[in-house]
Computed example of a mutant assay.
Amino acid sequence: MKEVFCIGEVLIDFVAEKQGSDLSQAREFTKKAGGAPANVACAVAKLGGKSAFIGCVGNDPFGTFLLNVLENEGVDISLTQRSEIFTTLAFVSIAEDGERDFVFSRGADKELKYSPGIKKKFNKNIIHFGAATALLGGSLEEAYGRFLFDALTQETFISFDPNFRADLWKNKTEIFIKKSMPFIEKSALCKFSLEEAKLISGKENISEACEFFHEAGTEIITITLGSEGTFVSCQGHSRIIPSISVKPVDTTGAGDAFIGCLLKQLSSIDSIESIKSNPDLLFEMIAIANKAGAITTMNYGAIKSLPSQTQLDQ
């Protein structure tokens, strides 16, 4: 089984449950572990895969809490760094229908330093770049780019999720698009939301957006469509894979559960390259990943709600 390395932010989500999607009206918050790349690492581990998280937390109680959560979920935290900068925080308010409003208070995640000793660990494994905060500058962005180069030299299967957050890129969307493109060009697999696909490609039509990404270099494209499922495009084959019907209470982490489940399945096959010539197998994997995403929306908090293999089978 291949190991899945997830690079990016881990943070504290202070969540206001059932208090509407207007954060200014929220009064009570619950502390939860979050951060898209960390969620993906936990999704892989909870399904029985091998995952490692590469990121930075503060040398404070919140940082310790996050590392404990990752380790308890079975994620390798030996490559995680600590900083004297305070741990990154996010404040989230969630309405009854699962819709969210959130803001970030950025801290230690941006302090991740490049480590050349990790390079050989990537060899013929999988690396996932979750970019919510990684393209905002600082040593994290530099490390991000250098890890991408390392992956390219190590026959690593590269996955990328741009994780666009409007609150972080106010009046700077063109910069976000420009910084995302090198990762899209070099990744074998890209996971987009419909909003991200349209924003980055500049296309309103989903097929035209996929054509744009394929021409850029991505071989496998997934575009999540919420309750409608996922649009998949690979090697001239494309279709919408439906999801399962659930009543969502919190959509946080659904996309991370989806890509984590897909990467876990890819890590379990002998030759990932073979998936590109076998679209039916890829479509089957996407259907299973859709279930993981849907199940995650049925409870509050991303990591706590990620399904185990038993839950997925049921």
Results as ranks from 00 to 15, higher is better:
8 G>K: 03
9 E>Q: 13
9 E>C: 11
10 V>E: 03
11 L>K: 03
11 L>S: 06
11 L>G: 02
13 D>G: 03
14 F>S: 04
15 V>S: 06
17 E>G: 11
18 K>F: 12
18 K>M: 14
20 G>T: 01
21 S>A: 14
22 D>C: 13
22 D>V: 14
23 L>G: 06
23 L>Y: 05
23 L>N: 00
24 S>T: 15
24 S>V: 14
24 S>P: 11
25 Q>R: 15
25 Q>T: 15
26 A>Q: 12
26 A>Y: 13
27 R>A: 14
27 R>P: 11
28 E>K: 15
29 F>H: 04
29 F>W: 02
30 T>W: 10
33 A>F: 03
35 G>I: 05
37 P>N: 07
39 N>A: 03
39 N>T: 00
40 V>D: 05
40 V>I: 03
41 A>W: 02
41 A>M: 00
41 A>T: 02
42 C>G: 02
43 A>I: 02
44 V>R: 01
44 V>L: 03
44 V>I: 04
46 K>R: 07
47 L>I: 02
50 K>E: 09
51 S>E: 00
52 A>Y: 09
53 F>A: 04
54 I>V: 13
54 I>Y: 09
55 G>C: 07
55 G>Y: 07
55 G>R: 03
57 V>Y: 09
58 G>T: 01
58 G>Q: 04
59 N>T: 10
59 N>D: 12
59 N>R: 11
60 D>G: 00
60 D>Q: 07
61 P>E: 12
61 P>T: 13
65 F>R: 03
66 L>E: 05
66 L>H: 01
66 L>P: 04
67 L>G: 04
67 L>E: 07
67 L>W: 04
67 L>M: 08
68 N>E: 13
68 N>Y: 07
70 L>K: 02
71 E>V: 10
71 E>F: 12
71 E>M: 12
72 N>P: 08
74 G>M: 00
75 V>S: 04
75 V>Q: 05
77 I>V: 12
78 S>K: 10
78 S>W: 08
80 T>D: 09
82 R>I: 10
84 E>K: 15
86 F>G: 14
87 T>C: 10
87 T>V: 09
87 T>A: 09
87 T>W: 09
88 T>F: 05
90 A>H: 00
90 A>S: 08
91 F>T: 07
91 F>M: 08
92 V>S: 08
93 S>D: 12
94 I>Q: 07
94 I>Y: 00
96 E>Y: 15
97 D>L: 05
97 D>S: 08
98 G>H: 05
98 G>F: 04
99 E>D: 15
99 E>L: 12
99 E>I: 11
101 D>C: 05
102 F>L: 14
103 V>Q: 14
107 G>D: 05
107 G>S: 09
107 G>Q: 05
108 A>Y: 02
109 D>I: 10
109 D>N: 15
109 D>Y: 13
111 E>T: 08
113 K>Y: 10
113 K>F: 11
114 Y>P: 12
114 Y>Q: 11
115 S>A: 14
115 S>G: 11
116 P>M: 07
116 P>I: 02
116 P>Y: 01
117 G>A: 11
117 G>H: 14
117 G>E: 14
118 I>C: 11
119 K>Q: 08
120 K>M: 14
120 K>T: 15
121 K>A: 10
125 N>S: 00
125 N>K: 02
127 I>F: 01
128 H>G: 00
128 H>V: 03
129 F>L: 01
129 F>C: 09
131 A>N: 01
132 A>D: 10
